[in-house]
Design a protein around this nucleic acid. Structure first.
Lengths: 255, 255
DNA sequence: ATTGACCTTCACGCAACGTAAAGCTGTAGA
DNA sequence: TCTACAGCTTTACGTTGCGTGAAGGTCAAT
């Protein structure tokens, strides 16, 4: 089956402008251009568009979608499983929001007597910030100084929902890549270095400025600090140390 | 309890920039400005912000949110119930999307053998309907009752491609016949009555059950509502009113 | 008295399209 | 064969909802 802009748009529920735009930014090129200059799409493009829309639904920006699905390492089947996890997350968040609106209605009707202002905004954002601050904030401050953490908080505070989703997604990617790399056993190998790279990207959402030294220092902290260690070693003991080694090599700070 | 931009932002999970922007567009003004020019928000603003975020979550644009919640007819409690309905809809859509991704995974793994291209976009398409809902749904509901709109959505969702093509074709026919009839200037004439008849046929694709009263009511809405009026008056001003008159005669509801 | 985290007002930037404008193509009907 | 008219093209400016400095005032603590 072949599609023109209009028929594909109708099928997928997007505008023709959107398809032309996706062509323009090289996110989704038509299979071919016919003799009259019309864009003609085939089955491969239909499937690719589906993938694109999954990512878009999760709030990933188009530039990153392009990077992801054009990467040589991209594996459609894995991506779908990741979508599945993310969509379940999203549904959990939606459930929280529904609980919120139900509670607010109950409050209005006098069926319950009080509701804190904090509760009134539950479900709009994941409460990653507070959790992080409570669990690790204090000790990180003590050991590694206030400055970095403050800056980190500043960025987190001003993060949009989309960015927040993005950083969560990146976090999952790091975990996944790290688990894969761990199997190879080689922290200098390609897989491990890719994981370190992803970790840097993830980190740059928390730090206003990146430095290799700080990155390496953090990696050491992952090993020193029991909680961080537990987090990374959760499924595979030794992962925290493996990550530290990979990052040391990545940053060039080997001692 | 009083809040500054930052504390309110933190509470609600929005950036300080967002709050200043909402002030700028008069969507959410602070309760007062203190002696140093700082924005100070109180409880009323907290509650209003919650309402705003509910609407925003549902994809309503800020201009419309402003119109809705500043309208003299606005009733917070009713709005919350509407949010509840909409959020449940959204969850249903999300479930459809999750079903989609699960089915796609099953297809990839060979557990099922086929999946139509239409199915591959299920759960995305639903969004289009939601958007329509948000744009027009609420006002139509308010004015003309809930039932009709719900039924309309249901039919639209379950339409096959062929039916969809047919309804589109019929829509064009209506437009064409109406333009022809308009030239005669006579809403009781043969041409105009033919157009009204076509309009009824077209309508029956959206409504599960036709009634003359509802038909006449809709025709009146075409004149009352600016968006619909603009649609029909696009090429020939006065067409909306002409159609209403023709339908009134056709249905016998001359009031 | 100096940090440093608050706050303020401009003002430009950006993603992801929407929306004409101006013109070519393909085919169904007079 | 001519004429509509939907449907395709490119070009280009407009819009929404903020992000992101810059330049500077405020407040509490050191």
């Amino acid at each position: 089956m072949e599609y023109t802009v209009q028929s594909l748009g109708k099928l997928a529920g997007v505008s023709t402008r959107t398809l032309r735009y996706y062509d323009e930014i090289e996110l989704l090129k038509p299979a071919r251009i016919n003799s009259s200059g019309y864009r003609i799409y085939g089955q491969a493009e239909v499937d690719r568009l589906q993938q694109i829309l999954f990512y878009r639904e999760l709030g990933v920006n188009l530039e990153r979608i392009k990077d992801i699905i054009t990467a040589p390492t991209f594996h459609g089947a894995d991506a779908l499983k990741e979508h599945h996890v993310q969509l379940l997350n999203k549904r959990a968040q939606l459930d929280a929001l529904i609980a919120n609106v139900e509670k607010t209605i109950a409050l209005n009707e006098g069926r319950i007597s009080n509701m804190s202002n904090t509760e009134k905004f539950e479900g709009f954002k994941q409460q990653l910030i507070d959790e992080n601050e409570q669990k690790y904030g204090k000790e990180i401050r003590e050991k590694y100084g206030n400055e970095q953490v403050n800056k980190s908080n500043h960025k987190l505070k001003n993060m949009t929902q989309a960015e927040h989703d993005e950083v969560t997604r990146l976090g999952h990617e790091v975990t996944f890549a790290l688990a894969e790399a761990f199997k190879t056993g080689d922290p200098a190998g390609e897989a491990a270095q890719k994981a370190a790279e992803l970790h840097k990207q993830w980190l740059s959402y928390y730090w206003s400025e990146y430095s290799k030294e700080a990155h390496a220092g953090l990696a050491q902290m992952y090993v020193d600090d029991e909680r961080f260690k537990a987090y990374y070693d959760d499924k595979q003991p030794g992962t925290a140390q493996f990550l530290r080694d990979a990052i040391r090599i990545y940053t060039g700070y080997r001692e």
